[in-house]
Each structure stands twice: as structure tokens, then as C-alpha cells.
Design a binder for these strands. Structure first.
Lengths: 334, 334
DNA sequence: CTGAAAGCGCTTACAG
DNA sequence: CTGAAAGCGCTTACAG
């Protein structure tokens, strides 16, 4: 049960016949060390199975090798596989660069809660935020000089690098598809309009609609909240206020699935009577009957983009926002 | 952009008129400090907005305040909301105890890959594993004395504390329900049989079946892999080999949903002709039509159990495995 | 290209 | 109950 005693610089230095400073240089890739001595150090490291103590390294260098991924617990965000997948993309990219991911799941609302506390404590070299409703914390943290990346488009222009899916373009393409399929009366069920993603998707819908020369009739735009229930609720409302609705663009697949269920329960055929397009290409898009036509976003790529933006920042490079493309996936519902 | 200079013990000590040792004692809750001096320290801390540098603390004390959550990337586990939710439960419990969660998403197969390396490097005080196919890494790490918790039942008896859902009991209850509903010929679509959860669920099914006095006919037990496709595939096979099948217990909701879809496509009514029970009570159980009767597991509780088992270990307490209960949720499919 | 030495900010026997 | 001092294991000017 006694943990194996780990060797330190002093034993490596002794074994290689060099100073600890030289050991440090070799292990940190300093090119200036003479190849012969570098090799001696490397041999000693290999032979002794040496592993650098990152805590000590962090204290001495001021760099922890840790990046925080901050997820707002308010939204029980983790029960949606979306953010889990993003996180996994982030984690992979970072670990390829020798950096570990610290996960923080907690309410991010306040600008001086535990999260802010921790992020300012110097234990992490940077933070990636899954921002949804509020920029307050991020904005406040900017002063601290902590490198940050936002996953999702921030509400205000924060001058902080972010990554996001092309929400506007995706929604535009989805709505356009409905138009091309001959739909005349196309409704939109939005996501939680407090999020920028929902706003952008609504804008994409509006843009496509506008190009037909009209504007959406009152009641055709329904404010949902990304939940299955809201999809069902608004489909029900739509059939009352606009019985002749023949197309629905829903801001995510879950609401689209809810809408399809209600439409069928109320005697409408999908896609014959009403065509439905979702967003995400979540698993549910494939299991719903009819399977959903939807806008696919590359969630892993989004996470990887966030990770690479962070790496670039740590390397002092200039960074600009990354918008990942979407793709129209045509299935049976439209 | 200049990070605010953070105060250290020396400035707190000076402000409070005590030694650094006393500051340390107060901040670590040492009761032996005289209340008056403790208060002076606390006042200085509050006034200066002091936050302890955890890296320095970790180096000096040998405790990092970090727990690793290790997720096997092989299984693209994160695209399943299940593990994300478990992680979120773990993270919440740990942070309540002042411990942060380091997320490691990477292939865990090898016992000397990057993960093992990191875990042995002393940067974390413990590790929670989401173990599925192999115990090798965990088993190897046991020698190092690192406190560990396994989420899921390990394959071999490892003498390492674990948490798991009552897979056996849940599957038993689900199958029993089918029997009670009058099903005579009940099939089982298993999960990936390389996982202990799938085995235990199969055992639960077998136990309930056995109590009816018979044994499953050949072909009634289908080896799936938790995927939608395998649910569809095996439902198709079942209708060929056992056209009179009238009940299906699937090891998760995804396969159950796939089975329902195929049954309907091939002209069977659910639940009139064939009753179907799933497992998990995932979102899809509610969106499938008919909605799935299923076995709910409390995923957040599972994560919290894992977190609390880790905390208990760190406190030197004796720990034993925790099995969280399941619940039969009756909907329309059975 | 290399080493001696100071230092990162805490913790913890030890002595009192 | 308290302080002086050594130490955790690295990194990094500095001088050569």
C-alpha cells in the first residue's frame, strides 16, 4: 500500500551527472542543452520511469497545465448530450497538448460565486465557458487577464474568442428547404429566446421567409424553450390558430419530435400535410417516425475548435471566432 | 490586463500581526488557535480578499484537491447523456467538499498510457472510473494506493468500492411486469454482453423467466449492443424465428425504441400484439410512440454516490459498494 | 552551453 | 497556543 517513492530532479541529475537545472531544461525541451548531456538525462528519465511532478512545476512556473470547462448547472445542461459531446472534443484537443481539463458544473450566474473564486485563484491557465443566458461572469473575469474561450455566441460583443455553430445559416437552409418543398405557411418554434443560438436560428428562419416576399403572420412564430413539451404545446396551438400550417421549422430536434407526435395525434400526416424540420441531428431525429429532416451540427468539431482556440491563446497567437458549418440532412419528415 | 497581484500568507500574517504558521492553521480549520487571533486572521483575509493558492498548498501538503473522472473514450461514451449526467452528480458532490473534478476522456485500455501516467503522477488525490469492458487499468493502479471508485460493477472482484444501479433487480421487475401482463413468449435483447450491466440485466430477465417454470427457447435471447440498430435488427430476427413472440425486454430504451419501430413497420401493434419494456427511462422513452414502459435508474444519484464514496475514502472511512434502486415506470408500450 | 542559488506560496514537525 | 525554520519539487534569471 505504500505508494512507490517517486524520483525527483535530484536523483535524475545525479544519475545523469548533470545539474538539476539541466534536467529541467531537457524536460522542458530547451534546445540549448548539448545533445550528449540531453541524451544522458533522457536515458536516466527512461530508466527510472521518472514523471515530472506537475504541481511543483506549476508552482515554480506559474502555469498549471489545467484548463477549466465551466458548465452552467442551471440548465441541467449535462442531461443534454450536446454539451457532453462538446466537452469531450475540448478534452481531446487539450490533452494532445499536455493540458488537462477541469470540469466545473455549477451555477454560473453570480460573478463572485465559487466558480469565479476558483478561476481567479490561479489554479487554471484558462477557462472555456458554455455560456447561455448571461455574460456577466465572463465579462467580469476579463479584467483578470485569464485566457478565455466561449462556446456559443456571447450576448454582447465581449472581444473574447468564441466558437459557435452556424445557427443562422443552418436555420436559413432548413426553412429554405421547406419553401422548396412547396410549403406556403411555415411556422417557427424557437428555442429559449434568452439564448443567442435561439435568436440566430429565428433570424435564419426570418431571412428565408423574407426572401419569399412576405412576413410571417401573427402566431406563426412560437416561443419555445427547447423542451419536448414546448414542441408539443406549440404544435397544438398552431393547429388552432393556423389550421392550414403546412411547414414547421423547430429550433431543435426535441421540439420537432414533440411537434410531429402532436400533429399525428391530431390527425395530420407528416410530411404529407405538414412538413417538419428540426435542428441538431440528435439521436432522436433518427428514432422519430417519420425520421426527421434536420440541420446537422458537428458537435465534436465545435469542442475541438474551442480547445484549439484556447491552445492558440496560451501560445500568444492571435485568435478569431470560429463558426462551424451545418449541413441539411434530408429524411422523411420534410 | 495585468492580473491583480494576489496577497500571500506573508501579507495576511503582517496585517493580522501573527506568524504565517498561524495563518495556515486558521485557514485549515485548526481549532487550537486562540479565537482572538483567529478572528484577526479571518478579518485580514476578508478585507484583502485573500484566496489560498491551492497549487502551493498542494505541493506543501501532498494533497491536490483534485479528483480525476476517467471516461473511456473507446465507447464514445459521452455521446450518451448517461455518463454526462453521472459526471455532473459526481462533480456536484465533490465541489461541496472543496474538491474539483478533472475530466479525462481517453482510451483506458492500456495500463501504461497517458491516463495511467497522469494518475500515478500524484496530481490527483483519487480517481473515479467509468469502467465498462476492462478492469486492467484499475487493477494495475490498485498497487499505487490511489483511492479509487468505480462507477459500474467491475468484472472481477477487485476489492475497490463501486456504485451501480440495481441492474438485476430492474431487469427482473421489467420482465416480471411482462409476465404479469400476460405475455407468454418473452424475448430479451441484451446490451453489449462485454459489460457487467448487460450481464446483470440478462440475469434479471432469466431469473423472472425461470420463476415461470420454463427456460427461454433458443433464439429468444438476442445479443445486442445497446445501439438503436441492434434493437431494430433483433426485433426483425425475432419476428422470423419466433413470430408468436408477445413480449420483449430490451436492455436499454434505445434498443426498445428500435424494436418498437420495426414491430410497427412489420404490422405488429404495440402493446396489443407485442409488449415492450426498456431500461433507463431515457428521454427517448417518452418520445417513442407508444411511450415506453421502462426501468428508471436515478443517474444523478449514481454520480452522487460515487462522489460520496470518494469523499469517505479520503476521510479514511470504511466504504462499501452502493447499489442504487430502480423503479418500474409504466407507460403505453407494456 | 551550464550550474549555483534563490524563489514559487504554502505546510508541518519541532521546540517552547 | 505559537513562531522560526525547513521543506515540498520544480523553474529561472544570473553569472560565467
Amino acid at each position: 500500500m505504500v505508494p512507490a517513492p517517486r524520483p525527483t530532479y535530484s536523483v535524475i541529475a545525479k544519475a545523469a551527472g548533470v545539474s538539476e537545472a539541466t534536467v529541467s531544461r531537457v524536460l522542458n525541451g530547451d534546445e540549448s542543452v548539448h545533445p550528449d548531456r540531453a541524451k544522458r538525462v533522457q536515458d536516466a528519465v527512461d530508466k527510472l520511469g521518472y514523471r515530472k511532478n506537475r504541481v511543483a512545476s506549476a508552482l515554480a512556473s506559474g502555469r498549471s497545465g489545467l484548463i477549466a470547462v465551466v458548465i452552467d448547472d442551471d440548465l441541467s445542461v449535462f442531461s443534454d448530450p450536446f454539451w457532453g459531446t462538446v466537452t469531450s472534443g475540448v478534452s481531446r484537443i487539450l490533452s494532445e497538448n499536455g493540458i488537462h481539463t477541469v470540469l466545473m458544473v455549477s451555477p454560473v450566474g453570480s460573478i463572485d460565486g465559487g466558480v469565479a473564486h476558483y478561476l481567479k485563484s490561479g489554479e487554471v491557465d484558462g477557462a472555456i465557458f458554455f455560456v447561455l443566458h448571461s455574460d456577466a461572469l465572463v465579462n467580469n473575469l476579463k479584467k483578470s487577464g485569464l485566457p478565455m474561450v466561449i462556446a456559443g455566441t456571447p450576448h454582447s460583443s465581449l472581444d473574447i474568442p468564441f466558437v459557435d455553430t452556424d445557427n443562422f445559416g443552418g436555420a436559413y437552409a432548413g426553412t429554405k428547404h421547406l419553401i422548396n418543398q412547396g410549403c406556403k405557411k411555415i411556422a417557427c418554434i424557437t428555442g429559449d429566446i434568452g439564448t443567442t443560438a435561439a435568436k440566430q436560428r429565428l433570424d435564419g428562419y426570418l431571412q428565408a421567409f423574407r426572401e419569399t416576399g412576405g412576413i410571417p403572420a401573427k402566431g406563426l412564430i412560437c416561443e419555445g424553450d427547447y423542451s419536448l413539451e414546448s414542441g408539443m404545446h406549440h404544435a397544438r396551438m398552431l393547429l388552432e390558430t393556423h389550421p392550414d400550417v403546412d411547414g414547421i421549422f423547430a429550433s431543435n430536434d426535441l421540439m420537432a419530435a414533440g411537434a410531429v407526435t402532436v400533429l399525428q395525434d391530431l390527425g395530420r400526416l407528416v410530411p404529407e400535410d405538414v412538413k417538419v424540420v428540426g435542428f441538431d441531428d440528435a439521436l432522436i431525429a433518427q428514432t422519430t417516425r417519420p425520421a426527421l429532416t434536420t440541420i446537422r451540427q458537428d458537435v465534436v468539431a465545435l469542442g475541438e475548435a474551442a480547445g484549439s482556440l484556447m491552445i492558440a491563446q496560451l501560445n500568444g497567437e492571435d485568435v478569431k471566432p470560429i463558426i462551424t458549418p451545418t449541413e441539411l440532412i434530408i429524411r422523411a419528415s420534410a
